[in-house]
Design a protein around this nucleic acid. Structure first.
Lengths: 216, 216
DNA sequence: AGTTTTGTTGATTTTATAGTCAAAAAAGAT
DNA sequence: ATCTTTTTTGACTATAAAATCAACAAAACT
């Protein structure tokens, strides 16, 4: 029996294929959601039989969890970045976080999509995501927003709402690229599109929450 | 055989139960997406056998479409509102649209959720939604944004991105209420929450895209 | 080289769900 | 009250996908 979850010390063949499976699974789950992806889909994309998936992962749910931990690592990277910037002002840290969020969201569209899919549905998978992947970072961002409000540089709205609105707004253009193509014939996922999006997020979306000099 | 889709002139028993089915279906589909909802789930929630659903609707896909047309009516209402305000400035019309969007989004959380679910996945159902429910109104809003940019009152970002960001940002707090409860222990869906959200959307999210006097 | 452990697979079972159908029940017409 | 049409249902079929398993192959170990 393979040690699914807790990896053995040195990565043998098993761990390598498990990793490949996780990668493929993350890509597909995030694109289509849990139920639109079948074990055979993943197996095929990974060039394996679907029985092999069940050798490495007890069931579909565990494979999903295991794949999502990949996102956890990406987020951990962001948190280290924030640790390194702890001396900066709360607002400056929020800007850093947003810039990082954009970068990883274009690179792993998985992130925003999974959050959206599970965050709307609620239930066990959301609770698990919250505990193992998202919760800590989101509460940290809310604390930053809260501090920025107290410092008088952000408009006084519930910090939780600010954090969610910023991320949902920023992720919208990325997640909803299919809709934008259908509706507008506009593909945001180009070099120019991403550049325009970055300044849109930083100079319009985020700055809308910043108190202008007038207000001070 | 029942006339599924085209209602018979006077609403007999059949049309009334069909309407109940559509209501329940809209609620569940929008909360969980097409594939997480089974015909039996809907039947049970409507207090009917699942065979009855197939009497009124040919298949699951048709039921979904039929349910979504309920959203189409809500959007048509918004469009009438915009028609009535055609003399107002583009920005004023956008504000009206956003205010309306908030009102209906809290009343029919289905709307934003379905857009998010299908807008991320792409495919046939999205194309259908675009043609029958969403497309016209979104292109109209983009045209308004475009006009506002030309008038020099909105910052010059791609109008399609502005429209999507505004709606995704505004809908975030509504759609992701389950996540907010899990992560923050914060329930946005209260009288105060909705009030705070409205001013957040109008005075921070939207106003972030408005050129300040400084810029003019 | 031989043995054991780990990894892989085709074939099969199980389960969940969409969709059908003939018969019963309810509603409506005469 | 009887007949006709509409509506509802329980029981069934078909299908797709998850999960299992016994046999086989490859790697690792001695």
């Amino acid at each position: 029996m393979a040690a699914a979850g807790t990896a053995t010390v040195s990565a043998g063949k098993g761990e390598r294929t498990a990793a490949r499976i996780r990668e493929v699974a993350l890509d597909q789950f995030s694109r289509l959601g849990f139920e639109r992806v079948t074990m055979s889909d993943i197996a095929e994309a990974a060039g394996l039989s679907q029985a092999t998936l069940h050798y490495h992962f007890q069931d579909k749910d565990q494979l999903w969890r295991s794949a999502m931990l990949g996102l956890g690592e990406v987020i951990a990277e962001e948190e280290r970045m924030l640790d390194a910037a702890q001396d900066a002002s709360p607002l400056a840290q929020l800007r850093i976080a947003m810039r990082f969020f954009l970068r990883i969201s274009w690179k792993h569209p998985a992130l925003g999509r999974v959050v959206a899919l599970e965050g709307m549905a609620g239930g066990e998978r959301l609770a698990w995501l919250d505990e193992h992947v998202l919760g800590h970072r989101n509460r940290r961002l809310a604390a930053l927003a809260s501090a920025a409000i107290e410092a008088g540089v952000l408009k006084p709205f519930p910090p939780e709402m600010i954090v969610i609105t910023l991320q949902a707004g920023a992720a919208g253009v990325i997640n909803l690229a299919p809709l934008m193509r259908d509706t507008f014939g506009f593909d945001p996922d180009t070099a120019e599109g991403r550049a325009a999006h970055e300044s849109l997020v930083l100079d319009a979306l985020l700055s809308g929450f910043v108190k202008s000099e007038r207000d001070i």
